[in-house]
Nucleic acid binder design. Structure first.
Length: 421
RNA sequence: GGAGAAGUACCCAAGAGGCCGAAGGGGCUCCCCUGCUAAGGGAGUAGGACGGGGUAACUGUCGCGAGGGUUCAAAUCCCUCCUUCUCCGCCA
């Protein structure tokens, strides 16, 4: 959520920044509503002050044994008026909130304007493998090697599900182990959150109300949903809390499956495990003071890159243009891994700095030592990494002429073999 | 799933329509006394959100789990919800 004060004070600047996303707004309506809101608040608060004073007087008169009923009529009228104005103020306040909540984050100054076409590759690791034979896609490789059972996955869960079997499950698990142990080595705190979350989590994460349809909702009296990413849980960890400055930065990571409806997004070229209703991901998350968040973003990017490099896979690091940065974020770098069969790079990690945008909505605050006022934290997140897209990349990039696949060295200690036949 | 009880500040806890921005402890901060890992005395200790104000002093409103309601007036009465605890049932 953006700061309404900033819009009040400098609407043109905000407008200009949003335009980089190709997002056009007119703040006149908002500013009018905001004025009306202030007016109503002032009016109703004056009445309340009067009522409070009168109530005190009544108490005093009664204690002195007098009769205060002559005050009641007038106070009744004031109370009715207060009720009426309170409702009106709440309505206007809601409109203001709705307007502001719908606004995406301001892209950082160094984020270029425009859409995907303006994304910039800032780093490349390794190179496209060249096969002296006809390379297979990961679906065929995984099926032939009995790593993934697509048909029985569909039998169990329906379209968009697969299951890992035997060595496939072991490799997937080895990837998770590899990531987890690297994060622990780096001093990050391991979190295993609930997979089912309440509505407040969706709201705090900026997911709701806009994207309610994108999640799997559970039956029951209360609104519960399956988390689409561990980020949704982690951002809410300190919701409505005030941490002390010394506790920051907090570096966390979590492993969860991610559950997504992905309604209508299936495409023929995204076969296999590129897009499913459930996939595994290790998520990194950081809560920081504002002045630390740039350094933390670098740190997260670096960590994510190192993980892929450890696997020896060819990838590129891309800095996203404003229009491709998701709504809550101010800056995003994607790690895109080479998928030979698709002849394109697919995202395996997205490292973003939300600045105070998420924190404002989730009320994530901290207080510096000796200071009285609270400040909003900055939040950052990044996949580290999504395993379900890495396994296909490993299969495709490491395949041999005979259909076998070389196991990346860092995974060998987990599964005990160096080639899958 | 059934039956009870409870949620008040950093913690414990009183309060039962107006005298409650909320007694009393503990803790913490400062001071005094005391030559010192004890003890005693005194003072301070509700945050936060949203407004007003030269965005300063100061000041208004809301805050006793959350949201509604009754009333001139609600921590206190009523309703709904959430959470915690105890007992029973069921169960990985």
């Amino acid at each position: 959520m953006l700061d309404i004060k900033k819009i009040r004070e400098n609407p043109e600047e905000v407008k200009k920044a949003l335009l980089k996303r190709n997002y056009k707004v007119d703040f006149n309506v908002l500013l009018e509503l905001d004025e009306e809101r202030k007016k109503l608040i002032t009016e109703v608060e004056e009445l309340k002050a009067q009522r409070n004073k009168a109530s005190k007087d009544v108490g005093q008169i009664k204690r002195d044994g007098g009769d205060a009923s002559h005050l009641f009529d007038e106070m009744k009228k004031a109370s009715d008026k207060i009720k009426e104005l309170d409702i009106k103020a709440a309505e206007v306040d809601n409109k203001v909130k709705e307007f502001v909540e719908a606004l995406p984050n301001l892209p950082d100054d160094d984020v270029v304007a425009g859409g995907k076409e303006n994304n910039q590759v800032v780093k490349t690791f390794g190179k496209k493998p060249e096969f002296g034979f006809e390379a297979k896609n990961h679906v065929d490789l995984a099926t032939n090697l009995k790593l993934i059972d697509y048909e029985r996955g569909v039998k169990l869960g329906g379209n968009g599900f697969w299951l890992y079997s035997g060595m496939g499950a072991q490799i997937e698990w080895a990837l998770l182990n590899y990531f987890v142990s690297e994060h622990i080595k780096d001093g990050y705190e391991f979190i295993l959150p609930p997979h089912m979350l309440n509505y407040e989590c969706g709201y705090g994460a900026g997911q709701f109300p806009k994207f309610e349809e994108d999640v799997f909702r559970l039956q029951g009296d209360r609104f519960m949903f399956m988390l689409p990413t561990a980020e949704t849980a982690l951002i809410n960890l300190y919701r409505d809390e005030i941490l002390s400055g010394e506790e920051l930065p907090k570096r966390l990571f979590a492993y969860t499956p991610c559950y997504r409806r992905e309604a209508g997004s299936y495409r023929a070229n995204e076969r296999g495990m590129i897009r499913g209703h459930q996939f595994n991901k290790v998520e990194m998350f950081a809560f920081t003071k504002p002045e630390e968040s740039d350094a933390l973003q670098k740190e997260l990017i670096d960590k994510a890159c190192r993980l892929v490099e450890g696997l020896g896979l060819h990838y590129q690091l891309t800095k996203l243009a404003a229009g491709d940065v998701s709504a809550s974020m101010a800056s995003t770098y994607d790690i895109e891994i080479w998928m030979p069969s698709m002849n394109e790079y697919k995202e395996v990690s997205s490292v973003s700095n939300a600045r105070d945008y998420q924190a404002r909505r989730a009320a994530l605050r901290f207080k510096r030592k000796g200071e009285k006022k609270t400040e909003l934290m900055h939040t950052l997140n990044g996949s580290g990494l999504a395993t379900s897209r890495l396994l296909p990349a490993i299969l495709e990039q490491n395949q041999q002429a005979d259909g076998s696949v070389i196991v990346p060295e860092v995974l060998r200690k987990y599964i005990g073999i160096d080639i899958i036949k």
